[in-house]
Amino acid sequence: MKHFILVAILVAILTVAVGTGLSAIGLMPEQASLQSVFIDQLFQKHVWTISFLFALIIGFMLYSIVVFRRKEDEQGDHFEGNTPLEIVWTIIPLITVLYFAYLGSQALAEVRRADPNATNITAVGQQWSWRFEYTDYGFISDELRLPVNRQSLIMTTSTDVIHSFWVPEFRVKQDALPGDGMERELRITPTKVGRYKVRCAELCGTQHAYMLADVIVMEPEAFDQWVQEQMQGPSGTPVERGAEWYQQFGCAACHSIDGTPRVGPSWKGLFGEEVTLADGSTVIADEAYLFESIRDPQAKIVQGFETVLMPPTGQSMTDEQVQDVIEFIKSLSEQESD
């Protein structure tokens, strides 16, 4: 009995030490969404359970190691088991995990609670950039701006491989899947104005590490104003608009405009040049070729780029937008001849 009392004290001390220690160092990043509140609460319960169970087993072990170590050539006490005890330590963990499963489904329900007035946004992943379609308002952006304290319903989807939408400060994550009918939803209610980042959390190829997008949580008024600005669309010349699309549709992830090598051919000086294709033939990069290359990227593959597949993003662009991009590509060659 003396042994048990001592161990109980040891376990209690260890539990408190580990538990408070873990809680004190701040395990999680900043808490910036309503959903993260529920998740962090549940996680905190886990932390304490882990602390207790770790202390329990380690406490008993340490005690045995010190007190029951062999001094001479002795044998241990002879007992082979204890069925009531085994039943107890089957039932108690069973109840504990069932309780946690209950907590888990509660927290999940909170995280998924729907607000009918949520702002609808489609987050499109493509190698290796994000594009956000504000479907309520009909414009596209390469940064994610969200109104604070209002729920946004983010539908994730992908044009090529699997990506994953994760903002650590919001805690929630959802894979973006390619294919029709594969859109998946994620609800986020930001609670803090600030700047965060979407970090693609599913390995998606070479540049996965750099597949980030800015998240800007704004006051609702500022957000509404930004929406108004965006809805007017980029004005200016086709070349300026083309430059805008170049960013927003994520072409910049693979195509440079200054000749630096990226995974796709640079657009610098492309227009009017002779392009060698994978099968050895050549074509002149005229408007028709560029149009086809954007709409149907696999129709003609440029030599040296056989292993990288360009995503079919162009199919979701309007004819005017494609035309703008072509104008933009043209402008990159004209500068050169100056």
Binding site: H3, I57, F60, M61, S64, I65, F68, R69, R70, K71, E74, Q75, G76, D77, F79, G81, N82, L85, E86, W89, T90, P93, L94, V97, L98, F100, A101
Partner: peptide
């Protein structure tokens, strides 16, 4: 979560094995 139950049985039984032994 159910897997934790049989795994726990192992841990507790190991502790039971160590208890009052001569290590």
């Amino acid at each position: 979560l159910l897997v934790a139950v049989p795994t726990g049985v192992k841990f507790f039984s190991w502790v039971g094995t160590m208890w009052r032994g001569r290590m």
